[in-house]
Design a protein around this nucleic acid. Structure first.
Lengths: 317, 317
DNA sequence: CTGTTAGCGCCTTCAG
DNA sequence: CTGAAGGCGCTAACAG
């Protein structure tokens, strides 16, 4: 039995006599042979690797997205290779280069803003590219996510309808986190249409966490004690804001309302459930995979898939 | 300038004239050339890929472990390729085969129990293998984690010293989750040494979640209303247990104590902080990577690294 | 420091 | 349905 026959059995593609197949399989198993996909991939110029580039892993949002991606990839027999940018576009550029060099079947990257060189590499690679999370500007190939700007705008509308008027904002670096920046813009637009504007804001370069949210709210309230609502860039920070209110004896909603983003479990597990927006993380991951595996070639025109979101009318705003 | 020179520049290994290097780099950047590591890996028989096999991603414990792994891998220039077993050993076998076929620089797998064939493949691969999370039996190469059995035992000792005597246990499939099984054994041993045993237990095949913990506790209490403490296999379920107590008006600690495992954020964010054991997840991931990248060859004798753990003396037990 | 020569282990193509 | 030949793009080993 020849080399090619073994190869054909192992890839179980091509018609093979049942007798030959079982015989080959048995020998393979006996000698513990593992086929070398590196060579295979070189010869056939394709692989079952999919590059996935995420800004952070500490944020459970991206764990969820990754889980959605992973779960959708498995039935197709693909493996994810993960890179984390730490919200840095140079790092992203480096990762794109590095992952592309493994000739992945497809790439999933976060956001629509990249360095020129990143875009060039991605474009030139020829593989399907999903840009996930935001859909506020045109993608390279396909974007899967939600309008972050609209989410910010809807946050403003929602809070205004609740009667809040004196807005504060607490966020994370807008140059690094483009989605946060978009929500911020949407929020401001919503306020501006109502003839209002932010009374105070605090934007930090420290990665968001409950701790950073807590201290930022505390500082912001010192400058602007008259706020009646604090909008946080995300739930991690908003939870810290809630903690600050507990500690400082500030009555939530009555004295100060708090609004987050993402609808993390931890926010919903608080004694007072956090008012926030649920981003469809699993769905975004899953949809991105399904879309790019649907066809190996890019569509004639860039596509956008809006997965929407949901306002969670919790107890803090 | 020849092909090999370019190759040498790109790998920046080998001495290269500064003038040549910059010239090559410029051309490369200009034409947007990305080197093909598949071919490179085939030729040099090594890669910067590290296979990582985890039981689940939905559990934030493994997100943390993965983050530890990722963060430690990056400075060395390695990329993780992730596989998820869903606590199934056949799936694990398949994944090991699949990841090994990419000729990774090293492999990180969860736990010490695998199918015979998995062990054979791993052993034969020749690469460094870290088995993480448990250290209760001898590893193939190196184990990094904590003694799960001892954690269970210490749970019993701790709760006994608090005066609890009527123990119930709520867990997840022991055939699937070996670490849960080990903690269970340790717990029983601790009780048995005190002349006690479990009054009731509920072990489910449904993946652990707050929901499953909640319903299991509810059912268990119906059979055994006289329990004074419920030990949960993990915090996810324990949080559900706490929710049940809130809903059913059961006074925590006075009427029923609850003890978890892992020290997840969500447990610590509850109105009453969960009593539990903190598993050093980031540390395990990081240490595993550091150890296997220390040397490319396996040690003469299997090594064990105990990262320890910490009892969190919370407000629920 | 740079160029040349052989493969790495498979998969594709083409015959039978 | 099975076998034989050639080459995927790179890097190790060897000159120079």
């Amino acid at each position: 039995v020849s080399e090619s026959t073994v190869s054909r059995v192992l890839r179980n593609k091509h018609p093979i006599a049942e007798e030959t197949r079982t015989r080959v399989l048995e020998v393979v198993r006996q000698m513990g042979y593992t086929r070398n996909r590196v060579a295979g991939s070189l010869a056939s110029a394709d692989s079952d690797l999919v590059g996935v580039i995420l800004p952070a892993l500490s944020n459970s949002v991206f764990s969820d997205v990754f889980r959605g991606i992973h779960d959708a990839l498995v039935p197709f027999g693909y493996q994810p290779v993960v890179g984390v940018t730490d919200y840095d576009r140079e790092t992203e550029e480096h990762l794109v280069d590095s992952l592309l060099s493994w000739k992945p079947a497809a790439m999933i990257v976060t956001g629509l803003v990249h360095t020129d060189y990143t875009v060039a590499m991605l474009r030139q690679s020829g593989v399907r590219i999903a840009e996930i999370m935001e859909i506020d500007s045109p993608p390279l190939d396909i974007a899967v996510g939600m309008s972050q700007r609209k989410a910010g705008y809807d946050t403003a509308r929602h809070l205004l309808s609740r009667g809040y008027r004196r807005f504060g904002y607490i966020g994370y670096s807008h140059t690094r986190d483009n989605r946060g920046a978009l929500r911020y813009e949407g929020l401001r637009q919503g306020l501006s249409e109502a003839g209002l504007s932010l009374i105070g804001q605090s934007i930090s370069d420290i990665p968001s966490s409950a701790q950073s949210g807590r201290s930022q709210l505390s500082a912001l309230l010192e400058q602007h004690p008259d706020l009646d609502v604090a909008v946080f860039s995300n739930d991690d920070m908003a939870v810290g804001g809630v903690f600050h209110c507990f500690a400082a004896g500030i009555k939530l909603r009555e004295e100060l309302a708090i609004f987050g983003f993402n609808a993390l479990d931890i926010g919903q597990a608080l004694p007072l459930s956090l008012s926030t927006i649920r981003s469809p993380r699993l769905l975004i991951g899953r949809t991105a995979v399904e879309k790019i595996l649907e066809s190996p070639t890019r569509p004639a025109r860039p596509t956008v898939v809006d997965t929407g979101y949901e306002i969670i009318d919790g107890e803090t705003a």
